[in-house]
């Protein structure tokens, strides 16, 4: 890489870090000023809504399989159902995810690609 490329890399690295850091510091100071006991209660409502909706959106984007064929979508559906089924029983994180991945993988392996 030449000097200009290194400069671009450093700029992106610093910029990305600041995008993550500065809003946090701003909110921390804002909450400290208000000095409320319940920090969540004094946050702007729109911000508390955007947190869960961001996670839901990440779920949506990650749900789209790399190969958008019938088998992949079927495996995705079964994987999520299995994850949900195990989660309703265990209310934990690790086991539902593991079972979901295994179910997804078994279907991807067992169903022939010719179904596509």
């Amino acid at each position: 890489m030449d000097t200009s490329m290194w400069l671009a890399l450093v700029s992106i690295a610093i910029g990305t870090y600041l995008i993550r850091l500065l809003p946090y510091m701003w909110m921390k100071r804002s909450l400290a000023k208000r000095q409320t006991e319940d920090g969540v209660g004094s946050m702007p409502t729109w911000l508390t809504i955007l947190g869960p909706t961001m996670i839901a959106a990440m779920f949506g984007t990650s749900l789209v399989p790399a190969h958008s064929d019938v088998v992949s979508w079927f495996a995705t559906g079964v994987g999520i159902l299995v994850t949900f089924g195990v989660w309703t029983r265990t209310r934990s994180m690790g086991l539902p995810i593991l079972c979901g991945v295994v179910a997804f993988g078994v279907i991807r392996l067992l169903l022939p690609v010719s179904l596509v």
Binding site: M58, S62, F84
Partner: peptide, 19 residues
């Protein structure tokens, strides 16, 4: 399968976090 199966861990993770 590294590319095909393991990435399903991400939607499964987001799902148990948001449900």
């Amino acid at each position: 399968l590294i590319n095909d199966v393991l990435p399903f861990a991400l939607p499964a993770l987001f799902f148990v976090l948001i449900i």
